[in-house]
Design a protein around this nucleic acid. Structure first.
Length: 905
RNA sequence: GGGCGAUUAGCUCAGCGGUUAGAGCGCCUGUCUUACACACAGGAGGUCAGUGGUUCAAGUCCACUAUCGCCCACCA
């Protein structure tokens, strides 16, 4: 009868439709200058390897937005890309080399770069493949890599422009040095961790041979770089010492004892050793006081020749040796345990050395000003809002950005040094000679740029900047920047600065920040913990749509997501539910002898009038009094479409998805389909048009979230509908459902709610009293207001509650002294089950009393409220009216309950 | 040292000032009812962390407290 399998098998379906979409070119926007485009530039994943769940979340959220806007008819661009990820990639390839017993120095720069490119080629392929598995509807024809020619030119152009404006400079400053990576790092790339160490009290003998000064330090080995001892000018304890000299033990350097107000009198002894070469605070003091700077370390953090007898020792070995020597000389006063935070390299976890070094910096403060303004004046909105303050806080306290890296993998700094006149040539294109003296003896700066420098240009470099391309003119500024809150500073903040600087316009209107994905216990996923879940594995086991459902349903912006297999199972189960509901509708369409006849009629009508098929059908249904469940489900569907549009517009995707899920499962499947089954066996009044309509509309509502299964089911349905019923050849370009205010049908909702309540009450009573599932029981329903409406649904109640004969009567028809029966008093009706013999009278009495009690409490509460003049006058009239009618219905209910209770006395 | 977030059912979380607070999973009872056992029907389970305030109305807004988590910071 049907070729549709019983369970959804995602694997077969996904590949088919992704290829179809690609072939049809549906991912590529058509530039239309009359329409405003919707644009997202994808945060480029690092080429370091496989995608993780964070990427899956990014791709899903962006795909949801992009598909939604595309279905709304906006020219939609989602531009994908990959980041060369300078240091991260270099570290990964170095590890590979280490496995072969090689290192980059053995290979040399050229060969090493070749090896990285080999890696990049493989990794890019895998990243693209994984995005496609995720269903990402991005425009692959516009894909970019940060080292492509275009972005490279953008990087050099931006650099030269900033340099010419004096916003990029080269200088000797204290920076973070990673001894393992052997490069400078920006402040952001340093992770601070609390370390329990010691505070060592060291005695420096005074030069005049009279006593000593004691300083406290966590890093005794740095005494080799000391060039002063400082005390607070207000500190009376050291009055006699200021101006004297101290002698550094072993190496014998004589250093002055000075005053500086930065010294905290309450810490340690109040006297501080000043090591300008290896401490940021000390460096600042040295600038104020014009102190000498001594660098005591080699790039690999062994001691250099400045360390005298300690030269060649590793920094930690040196510390032990220094301590032993001080101890021996009686100069180690005491050791106290001390906890403080120490910087570590983000990539390799090696302890960072603060070090004075000649590097390139961006002077950020002038750029930050414009970036602050763009957010405070509302041109850029950050979601969730609370990150606005985090952003502003960071921007307001921003420090210059060290952008040079002593790495090989990345954008080479576009600066050439002249060996003849020592001047710099800063140029976008490779110069052949020095721009100052014309000598051709020039050499390019060996360093590369921080990988985030090219990322900062990503929104405009991908669209063609610095060229004035059509793409740049049409798609920039982009609509939404969607990414994790963990790279707000690294990336988002810098894009805003550089976007404004380079183009004079904001790079995007909205920043949407998502949370981090953790495991089911809320712990960070990491290889060390072994709790990493790969998106590809999840897709293999549960399907892409299930994964997408799992990472987005019931989540909210900026909040972390705990993802375990239970969420994935829920997604898979929902997909299977969709599958089977659609299977049912398709089977019914196939089985109906007058296949799709009703639909055809409507379709013809619709075409004649030039309106949408579903609109015509909905109108037709609304005009009919019966069957009321058709009006009901269409009313509910409209309400859903209205809510979803509102939620999507407010970036509440998780909630939108949840509502679609609840409608589909809890109303369409649980009630509408079950009722439709009854009508299918009857000759007239086919439910097929409305079944098809409701299913098709829900599939479109859901498509942005679960693209594969919705396309598959939509196509299955489409094949069974009259030609031309659906305007497009793919759900992904079908129009997104728009709510029609006229389809709201409060009357139909009220009747169906009552019918459902009646059925539930009977099922409940059956279960409570352990009536066998197969047994038919007798039931009577007494109602005044809805008698005819409910009577018209008696077949539905009979079948779904297994109650026959069923009588639907007015309350007047109820005999005063009915036999003892089980009575359920509902909102609009009383349901009577005449089971005299099997009822525990005492228990029934108690149940009724309990119910009266509950309702009476509500009545008291409402009466209290309505008596309150403030409430009646200040609350909106609709709210007051709602409370009044609620009170009335409770009063009515309690009256009926009391009548029932009277039977027992 | 500064800042942010979380605290709602056994677990994981929605709920964005207006019904008697919801979902998934788990649990209990029953059912292989011709779309689906990845399911169906029924059920149990919550002083919305605490205190105070604003409001006609507070899980929702404000303040403080507690616990947990995160971010930032030049804690020698």
């Amino acid at each position: 009868m049907t070729d549709i399998p019983k369970a959804y098998e995602p694997g077969q379906v996904e590949q088919k439709w992704y290829s179809f979409w690609m072939e049809q070119g549906h991912f590529i926007p058509k530039i239309d200058h009359r329409r405003k485009p919707f644009v997202i530039i994808m945060p480029p994943p690092n080429v370091t390897g496989e995608l993780h769940l964070g990427h899956a979340l990014t791709a899903t959220l962006e795909d949801i937005m992009v598909r939604w806007h595309r279905m709304r008819g906006e020219p939609t661009l989602w531009l994908p890309g990959v980041d060369h990820a300078g240091i991260a990639t270099q570290v990964v390839v170095e590890q590979k080399l280490a496995e072969e017993g090689l290192d980059r120095h053995k290979l040399g720069r050229e060969k090493f770069i070749e090896r990285v490119w080999e890696w990049v080629k493989k990794a890019r392929h895998s990243i693209t493949y994984q995005h496609q598995r995720l269903g990402a509807s991005c425009d692959w024809t516009r894909e970019r890599f940060t080292l492509d020619d275009g972005p490279c030119r953008a990087v050099r152009t931006a650099f030269v422009r900033l340099y010419n404006k004096g916003l990029i400079y080269r200088g000797e400053r204290i920076i973070n040095w990673c001894p393992r990576c052997q490069t400078a790092l920006s402040d952001l790339e340093v992770q601070h961790k609390d370390v329990t160490g010691n505070l060592y009290y060291l005695r420096y003998p005074l030069a005049d041979g009279d006593g000593y000064v004691t300083v406290a330090t966590t890093r005794p080995e740095t005494y080799l770089g000391d060039t002063a001892v400082a005390v607070n000018p207000e500190d009376k304890r050291f009055k006699g010492l200021v101006g004297k000299k101290a002698v550094l033990p072993v190496i014998g350097r004589v250093i002055p004892i000075i005053t500086d107000s930065a010294v905290d009198t309450s810490f340690g002894t109040g006297a501080v050793k000043i090591t300008p070469g290896h401490d940021p605070v000390d460096f600042e003091i040295s600038e104020r006081q014009s102190l000498a700077i001594v660098n005591i370390l080699n790039p690999d953090a062994t001691m250099n020749e400045e360390a005298g007898p300690y030269a060649g020792l590793d920094r930690f070995a040196c510390r032990q040796k220094v301590l032993a020597d001080f101890e021996k000389a009686g100069l180690l006063e005491k050791i106290e345990p001390h906890s403080h935070s120490v910087g570590h390299c983000e990539r390799c976890q090696t302890m960072i050395e603060p070090e004075v070094s000649k590097q390139w910096f961006v002077k950020v403060a002038p750029l930050a000003e414009a970036a602050i303004e763009a957010v405070t004046d509302g041109r850029i909105v950050i979601i969730p809002e609370r990150f606005t303050r985090v952003y502003l806080n960071w921007m307001e306290n921003i420090r210059d950005w060290c952008i040079s890296r002593q790495l090989w993998w990345g954008h080479r700094i576009p600066v050439w040094y002249c060996r003849k006149c020592s001047e710099l040539t800063v140029s976008v294109d490779e110069p052949s000679s020095c721009s100052h003296c014309g000598s051709d003896d020039i050499i390019q700066d060996p360093d590369v740029l921080d990988t985030w420098f090219s990322s900062a240009l990503w929104t405009h470099s991908t669209l063609g900047w610095p060229e004035a391309t059509d793409d740049l003119a049409y798609f920039y500024p982009t609509s939404v920047m969607e990414t994790g809150y963990d790279i707000l500073f690294f990336w988002v903040a810098r894009m805003i600065m550089m976007g404004l600087e380079d183009t004079g316009d904001i790079p995007f209107h909205i920043v949407y920040l998502h949370g981090l994905i953790r495991d089911e216990k809320g712990e960070k996923m990491s290889k060390v913990r072994g709790n990493v879940l790969s998106p590809t594995d999840a897709i293999e086991e549960y399907g892409t749509d299930a994964l997408r459902f799992a990472v987005t349903t019931g989540t909210s912006p900026g909040n972390d997501i705990n993802l375990g297999q239970h969420r994935l199972e829920a997604g898979r189960n929902f997909a299977n539910k969709l599958w089977n509901a659609a299977r049912f509708v398709c089977q019914s369409l196939d089985a109906e002898p007058t296949k799709g006849q009703a639909l055809t009629e409507v379709a013809v009508l619709a075409r004649l009038k030039g309106v949408d098929l579903w609109q015509a059908l909905a109108k037709l249904v609304a005009a009919q009094a019966e069957p009321i469940e058709d009006r009901w489900i269409l009313s509910r569907l409209n309400r859903l479409a209205s809510n979803v549009t509102e939620l999507m517009s407010n970036f509440q995707f998780g909630e939108a998805e949840r509502q679609i899920h609840d409608f589909f499962w809890g109303e369409f499947c649980d009630w509408y389909i079950e009722i439709a089954k009854i009508r299918l066996s009857q000759p007239n009044s086919s439910p097929l048009p409305v079944l098809s309509l409701a299913l098709e509309t829900t599939l479109r509502l859901l498509h942005p979230f679960m693209p594969f299964i919705t396309e598959e089911l939509w196509q299955n349905l489409r094949r069974r509908l009259p030609n031309g019923s659906l305007a497009s050849d793919s759900i992904m370009i079908a129009p997104y459902p728009v709510a029609n205010g006229r389809a709201f049908d409060p009357e139909a909702e009220r009747v169906m709610e009552s019918v459902i309540e009646i059925i539930r009450s009977i099922r409940n009573a059956r279960a409570e009293h352990k009536v066998a599932v197969a047994k038919w029981i007798e039931a009577r329903i007494y109602t005044d207001k809805l008698q005819s409406a409910i009577a018209s649904k008696s077949a539905v109640i009979e079948t779904l509650a297994k109650a026959r004969p069923l009588a639907v009567l007015s309350r007047e028809q109820r005999e005063a002294k009915e036999e003892k029966a089980l009575v359920m008093v509902l909102k609009e009706a009383d349901v009577v089950l005449p089971w005299a013999g099997m009822i525990d009278l005492a228990a029934e009495k108690q149940r009724l009393e309990g119910e009266i009690n509950t309702v009476q409490n509500e009545i008291d509460r409402l009466e209290q409220r309505l008596k309150d003049a403030a409430f009646v006058s200040k609350a909106p009239a609709a709210v007051v009216e709602k409370e009044r009618s609620k009170l009335q219905s409770y009063k009515d209910k309690v009256l009926r309950l009391e009548q029932e209770l009277a039977q027992f006395s």
